[in-house]
Write a protein that binds this DNA or RNA. Structure first.
Lengths: 368, 368
DNA sequence: CGATCATGCAGAAACCTTCCTTCGGGGTGG
DNA sequence: CCACCCCGAAGGAAGGTTTCTGCATGATCG
């Protein structure tokens, strides 16, 4: 520290600190720019002595290569866009909160581990922002039918991998998605096995693939089983509409004795609605909802949830994208279907063990 | 749509699409590079006719200026880092989930509105990633004592604004934080007014400012009031430890008749623990926790929460940072303290209106 | 009618790195 | 003694933009 400080004292320190460039390092080390670049990047043919010397000088000067210049030269920015569908002004929606947070977290980790960073870019954002950032590729969550941004990116040759099957003929390089039909069928079978006679669905009005696939799977199941469908649809991006829809579903004359809710808040909304109507869960009403929230382990009663395993999805999406960027993956589009996980709790089991005074949860069951 | 498609049909589409550069636009428009740049950026002295013509040609060629080149030239990348403290490998922690998600959402919006994009960068990430991205500035959430990354950034002259008071002597340009003492005192007074005789605290073992300020405020309040402090501390980043600590707190011989939990999951954990011990909320136990989760409006009973208003924080942080980047703000460090909001629900009121069959929540009360 | 000036546009440097090419020199085999 | 090869290192172009400077041209004013 002191030595370095002593050395740097000779540098003119103006009010604005001029960053040391590769030129300065070359001059200070008494070598050429080329040698510095090679030494620092582990390229070229240089004796270790030279390499070490250059590195030492670079460290001493606090040299950081200019990301912009490197990007300009190499065509790689090390930046990956994370695009989320937007409803209205806000970057991402309420219903996907926990899912998105977990997925983004995993994606960030995965990207970082391979030397990339994530840029959050709402789909409907100002075009100038999109244009202003050099992206090596983009992850797009739940792409809408003919997303102009995605189309433009693909046209420019930027690799795009989507979380969720691309709707329409969006030409993404790859996609990762859950097996939604399988998941819904599994839940319906589970509820039926627990004694449900009429299973209702709380679904959304939007046309994204998740909603669509899940709903049609439900309808097909009903047809196969011979049950009359009982469902309510609401605009999933409206945090208030969910509670209303839950109430509507339980207020119907053909009230279901089991409900599956497609969106995260549905669990609490349905639970609250059940209470208002004096329905006991799970005795009078079986409940399952799709959620990543850990809170459902502590509700009264705990609610069975379907986890989409967003961490796996986020990791897979990023791996696929970086493979495509670096050209190590297969040239053809990849479609990866990931399993879901049904976390069975009291709300969907007919003979619940009454919760009384019992020891607190032990940390034994870690998170998968 | 059809007209546009027809128009573009004439372009030769090779297997690898070479992006049009400013040179190509200049050639196609029959003007110089300078004129193109000026026309597109609204600079220089050009007649409107020329401007229009250049823009039209640029559009036709699908010209997008190279972000890297522009950054290299101007020294501005339009990128803002969003740094989060990390526990272990993961970018951000469980306890801050909802808070962070909301805060990030607001920050993204605010940044976008001013033409910037956010890059997610965990604090303890590989240094090479930090070096590889050109940042105009950085938002750092809950900076730790002597964060090496922040120190390095500041040394390089990159503006840094923190969410949360910087611990130690971290030389950030500005910070935004809640008035934590005020918030805690408000809650304690509220609980006391509701009839609490002995108020307990569920707090964390970490040394961040939030935990520290809140805890000391609690201790001071106890001393002032003359109540013996009753609290349990646990490692807040461990999702399991919270439930155990909640249980421990209610198992004490000097069991409190009211509890404030500093972290998001504390509400459900405390509620579950209360149930295990046969304590009715709010009759036997008053409950408040700090959370941004909307789920607490639908628990049984609904739990009073303290909101840190992360959206306001996120917006303010970004505004301050961009002001610093663009040099429009004051030169001296800014410290902005934002109020919190106590959302009073059943769990902290002694005479609760029994929830019975009632109409569902109406959408009337929108989100502030 | 000549000097001045605003206008419209072009040339070229600079930003900083990477990487392809070249070059000198010393050792080695013929 | 010459040709050749390889090692170590340097030269220089390229990457695409912004912006400073400068040069014409035509209009205006004294």
């Amino acid at each position: 520290m002191t030595a370095a400080g002593n050395h740097q004292a000779s540098r003119p320190v103006g009010r604005r600190l001029e960053r040391a460039g590769i030129r300065d390092v070359a001059a200070a080390a008494g070598v050429s720019i080329t040698t510095v670049s090679d030494a620092l990047n582990g390229k070229g043919r240089l004796p270790d002595a030279t390499r070490r010397h250059v590195r030492e000088v670079a460290d001493r000067l606090g040299y950081r290569p200019s990301a912009a210049a490197r990007t300009l030269r190499t065509g790689r920015s090390g930046l990956i866009g994370l695009t989320v569908t937007t409803y209205g002004e806000e970057p991402f929606t309420f219903t996907e909160f926990a899912y998105f947070a977990e997925m983004a977290r995993a994606a960030t980790s995965a990207a970082l581990a391979r030397g990339y960073a994530l840029v959050i870019l709402p789909a409907s954002s100002r075009h100038d922002v999109w244009g202003n950032v050099a992206l090596d590729g983009t992850v797009v969550v739940d792409p809408s039918d003919h997303d102009p941004v995605v189309t433009e990116l693909v046209r420019q040759g930027v690799p795009v991998v989507s979380d969720g099957r691309p709707a329409g003929s969006l030409p993404v390089h790859a996609w990762v998605d859950n097996d939604h039909e399988e998941a819904v069928l599994g839940i319906l079978d589970h509820l039926a096995a627990a004694g449900a006679r009429r299973i209702g669905l709380l679904t959304g009005t939007s046309t994204d693939t998740y909603t669509r696939l899940s709903t049609t799977a439900y309808l097909e199941w009903c047809e196969r089983i011979g049950q009359e469908p009982v469902y309510e649809a609401y605009p999933a991006h409206d945090p208030c509409a969910g509670a209303v829809a839950a109430d509507r579903l339980l207020a119907r004359p053909d009230r279901p004795d089991a409900v599956y809710g497609l969106f995260d808040p549905n669990g609490t909304d349905l639970l609250a609605a059940a209470r208002r109507y004096g329905l006991r869960v799970p005795d009078d009403l079986l409940l399952v909802c799709c959620s990543e929230s850990t809170g459902y382990a502590a509700t009264e009663p705990p609610i069975t949830t379907l986890s989409l395993k967003p961490r796996r999805i986020g990791t897979a999406v990023v791996q696929l994208l970086i493979d495509a960027i670096e050209g190590v993956g297969p040239a053809h589009p990849v479609q990866q279907v990931m399993p879901t996980e049904l976390i069975i709790r009291t709300s969907s089991q007919r003979r619940p063990h009454r919760t009384t005074v019992s020891p607190p949860r032990t940390p034994a069951r870690g998170e998968g």
